[in-house]
Every structure is written in structure tokens, then in C-alpha cells.
């Protein structure tokens, strides 16, 4: 066990995977000096420039090359800096990486991990602050992972590197410096949610950075006599229907909260599933359908607050 930041925890998972498996190779912009968030720090010194490859600013080609590398037997880790820049490589992700296994009946596989951090990034405005996880969860063939804390970032990145399919790995842009104890040998399977707080009156499902305001809201709700069970989904595809449905069957009420725009967000999928299966009341908390503003006032208005979640828990 060691106290590590979210960025260091991801780095440690990668370092262990690279040491164990020569097929794991990192490529992207500024990875050699450690990545812009420090999530690759020390790896080029340790594994050399052939396995931690600095590339020109060429997102489509970086992703396309990774598809080729994966088809040829490597396990590339693709640095896209933030999900917003991965939009320059959407054909490579959606039409190429996601389809290969199906098209070739399992003969061609694309075991890559593309790191596409999501979320509001302070002071960076509309095109650097998006939470587009639902876009990728919508595409057959992609695994979508959204870790909320250092331990999960270590364990889920390790699991993603083993998974054999293209993984859209979505760290949150404002969690990099969050610190906690991390056991690098602890395993977290993809597709398994984590119950962070037990409760009896309402099930609160969330992921990534929104876990923090969700836990605050649950504490505040408890003081008002409402007991909320908080579930960190951790993987959006495949998502842990079993855990969510079992909890909601007990509490008979569901709230889903995420930073992404509420309209057609992944919360809608969870709410619809729970409503179909259990016929209980569901609510969604999410961003307004508007680009994130630059001014701090506008930016803060786009964040999902504990107060907004609390209001839904109490209704």
C-alpha cells in the first residue's frame, strides 16, 4: 500500500503492465516528459522511447496507428489528452477499433486502451470541458470505464489492459491530484459497480468526479432523515445492472447523477432500465444542455452540486 495520486495510480498500473508484458506500448503527444497531467511520469526513462512514443499532433493517425498496432498483436495505450481532442479521431474509434472483432468473427481484435479524460477542466471552457461518455457507451464494440478514485484508477487500468477489446478509458480532468492509499495488486473487474454507502430509502447511481458531490448529498440527506445508497458505477459499458437493480428493488426509488449534459446522458439508460424492470420512480440530475462557459461564474453554474443532488434525493 502507498499513498498515491489518481495520476500516479494510473501510472503505476501502466508501469506494472509494461514490465509484465512487452506488448504494452504507449503513444501520444507529450508522453515522454510524463504527459500533461503527470500520468506517464518516469515511464519513458524506464522503458525507452520505443515503448513510450512521442508523436506529432496528429490525433487521427495516432488512433489509426494504434488500431494497426493492435491488429498486429500489440496492446497500445493511446494518449488523447482529453476526450475533446479525441473527436479528431472518431472514425478510427467508432468505425475501426469498435467494429473489428465483430467484422472478422473474432479473428481480428483491437485490444487497445484509449485514455480520453472527461469533465470540466477549470478555466478551459466549452471545448475542453465535455463529458462525452454516453457517446462511446452508445457504440457497440467499445468498453467504457470511468474511475473515480486512485485505487480504481490503478485496478481498472490494469483490468482494461487485460480485456482484449478497445477500451475508452475516461479519467476525470479534475481528479488527477486526489490522493488515497492504493494497493496495486488489488483487482477490480470491469463491469462491477461499487457500493460506497449503504442506504434504505433511495438508490443514487453516479460515477467519476460526481461521486464526491453525491456522497456529500447523501450525508446531508441522512441528516434530513433520508437514507441514500450510493453506487459508483465505475464501468459504463458493460454496466453493473445486477447491483443497481438489486439496490433499487430494495429502496424503490432511483436517482442518477452525472456531470454530462442530462439530455440523452448515460443516466437516461440507467433510469429507463430501472423503470422498465421495476416500475419505480426515477430521477436524473445532469448538466444543462449548453456549452460550459469560460467565466468562473458560468463554469460553476455548469457543475453538478451536492445541493442539486440533495434536492432530487429529498423529492
Amino acid at each position: 500500500m502507498a499513498c498515491l495520486s489518481y495520476a500516479q495510480a494510473g501510472c503505476l498500473a501502466l508501469e506494472r503492465a509494461m514490465a509484465a508484458d512487452p506488448a504494452v506500448v504507449v503513444l501520444g503527444e507529450d508522453v515522454g516528459r510524463g504527459g500533461i497531467f503527470g500520468q506517464y511520469r518516469g515511464l519513458q526513462q524506464k522503458f525507452g522511447t520505443a515503448r513510450v512514443l512521442d508523436t506529432p499532433i496528429s490525433e487521427a493517425t495516432i488512433m489509426g496507428a494504434a488500431v494497426g498496432m493492435a491488429l498486429a498483436g500489440l496492446k497500445p495505450v493511446v494518449e488523447m489528452r482529453v476526450v475533446d481532442f479525441a473527436l479528431c479521431a472518431m472514425d478510427e474509434i467508432v468505425n475501426q477499433a469498435a467494429k473489428a472483432r465483430y467484422m472478422f468473427g473474432g479473428q481480428g481484435r483491437v485490444p487497445l486502451v484509449a485514455r480520453l479524460p472527461i469533465g470540466i477542466w477549470t478555466g478551459s471552457a466549452a471545448q475542453h470541458s465535455q463529458s462525452l461518455e454516453a457517446w462511446f457507451a452508445h457504440v457497440p464494440g467499445l468498453v467504457v470505464v470511468t474511475p473515480s478514485n486512485p485505487q480504481d484508477n490503478c485496478s481498472l487500468l490494469a483490468a482494461s489492459l487485460e480485456c482484449g477489446d478497445p477500451v475508452i478509458y475516461m479519467e476525470h480532468k479534475e481528479l488527477w491530484t486526489v490522493e488515497a492509499e492504493v494497493d496495486p495488486t488489488a483487482k477490480v473487474p470491469l463491469g462491477r459497480a461499487s457500493v460506497l454507502r449503504a442506504g434504505a430509502d433511495v438508490t443514487l447511481v453516479t460515477w467519476a468526479r460526481t461521486v464526491q458531490p453525491a456522497l456529500e448529498a447523501a450525508t446531508a440527506a441522512a441528516a434530513r432523515g433520508v437514507s441514500a445508497e450510493v453506487i459508483d458505477l465505475r464501468t459504463l459499458w458493460p454496466w453493473d445492472r445486477e447491483t443497481v437493480l438489486a439496490s433499487a428493488a430494495r429502496t424503490r426509488r432511483l436517482v442518477v447523477a452525472h456531470e454530462a449534459v442530462r439530455v440523452a446522458g448515460f443516466g437516461a439508460e440507467i433510469a429507463a432500465t430501472v423503470a422498465e424492470e421495476l416500475g419505480i420512480p426515477v430521477r436524473r440530475v445532469g448538466g444543462a444542455r449548453i456549452p460550459v462557459g469560460y467565466s468562473k461564474v458560468l463554469e460553476d453554474a455548469a457543475r453538478i452540486s451536492a445541493a442539486a443532488i440533495l434536492e432530487s434525493l429529498l423529492q
Binding site: 499532433i57 462557459g293 458560468l298
Partner: peptide, 24 residues
């Protein structure tokens, strides 16, 4: 206050900015 003036200049002066935030 919606976006950064050092990335997108004012169109009314026929200045075009990095509307996508992406380079290119």
C-alpha cells in the same frame, strides 16, 4: 464571458478563432 478571447478573436473584426479548441 463564454469563451477565452486569447483563443477566439472577435468575428466582427474579421478575426477567426480556434472554434473547436483543436489545432488545425
Amino acid at each position: 464571458g463564454r469563451y477565452r478571447s486569447d483563443v477566439c478573436g472577435p468575428i466582427e473584426h474579421r478575426v477567426i478563432g480556434l472554434y473547436s479548441g483543436a489545432l488545425g
